[in-house]
Every structure is written in C-alpha cells, then in structure tokens.
C-alpha cells in the first residue's frame, strides 16, 4: 500500500538518520527562509535519483560548497581541506542513494532504486512539483537540501 510523499519533518528525520548512523552527524529542519533552495538561491551541487516503476519518484539531495565539503570529509574520514569536487559529488550521490532507499520504504514502494546523477552546477528545480526541506547541522553550521517529487527525473 503506497503512501504520500513524506513531509519536511520526516525528510529531515530520514537524512539525519542516515548521517547519524554512518558518521554521527545530525541534521534538523532549518527555520523557514526568505529564499527557498533551488529556485531563488541555487545550491552548488544537486544530485537526482530516480525510483522507476508503477509510481515514479525522484529524490534530490543538494548542498552548497561548504556543506558538500563537510559531508565529503565525514564520508571519506579525511580533512575538509583534502576533499575535492569528485569526492563531494560521490558523497552526495551516496547520500541520495541511501536516503532514496528510506523514502521508498516510507512510501511503501516496491520499486527498484535507480542510479544517482549529478546535475548541472546551480541547477534549479521547478519547486511547485517538489516536496522539499532545508536542513542544517547545528554542530557543523552547514546546510543541505532534500526534495522528493512524483515526476520522473529529467
């Protein structure tokens, strides 16, 4: 039985649950902002992951450069200074992969995960079709974004 797309609180929980388990970093839903991500203030990197099947879903994870660097350093267990762009892309792709697995489970979708792809720098998403959440890690002072849409990834 499939369910609705999770709301911002749940999306925040999902991302935080993943990062907390893997490298002890938690995120919380950020307070509402004047600028919403992807349309007015494009994040530095966006990764899109499709879940194909009867009910196609796309999961997006994005970060600004600082956020991507910190995530990369945690994923690769190294200094933030030694994290390069490919490591950031890789970390965001893996985060999208694991979060997509969680989204699929929460929505009760018996569909296989697709492959994550890195979008163009500064890629904007048409936010009217997405359910999104802005998250911040109080400890690291970084922001990441997560969004889910019922439209196939383009």
């Amino acid at each position: 039985m499939s369910m609705d797309i999770p709301g911002p609180d749940k999306l925040a929980d999902l991302v935080s649950g993943v990062t907390e388990t893997m490298f002890g970093m938690s995120f919380a839903l950020a307070p509402p902002r004047d600028t919403s991500p992807w349309n007015t203030m494009p994040p530095w990197r966006t990764v899109l992951l499709p879940i194909h099947g009867r009910r196609p879903i796309t999961v997006a994870i994005a970060a600004d450069e600082q956020g991507g660097r910190v995530l990369g350093s945690r994923m690769f267990s190294c200094d933030a200074a030694s994290v390069d762009a490919s490591m950031i892309d890789d970390s965001l792709r893996e985060l999208a992969n694991i979060v997509a697995g969680q989204v699929k489970s929460v929505m009760g979708l018996d569909q296989a995960l697709g492959l994550p792809t890195v979008g163009d720098p500064g890629q904007r998403l048409e936010m009217s079709t997405w359910r999104a959440a802005t998250l911040q890690s109080p400890a690291e002072r970084i922001v990441v974004w997560v969004a889910v849409s019922e439209t196939p990834a383009t």
Binding site: T21, G101, Q102, K104, D110, A112
Partner: peptide, 25 residues
C-alpha cells in the same frame, strides 16, 4: 540501500552469505 524483496531473494538464490542494509555502522 536496496531492500526490495524480489531483488534480495534473487541474490539469495544465487548464493550470498549475508546482507547489510545501508546506512550501516
């Protein structure tokens, strides 16, 4: 990160020792 039963069942038929679901500690 894949927990789809049919995929895991297919892998089990081919012979796997164990399975870890991401995220993992």
């Amino acid at each position: 990160s894949e927990s789809k039963t049919s995929i895991i069942a297919g892998c089990m038929k081919l012979g796997i020792e164990d399975y870890i679901l991401k995220p993992f500690k």
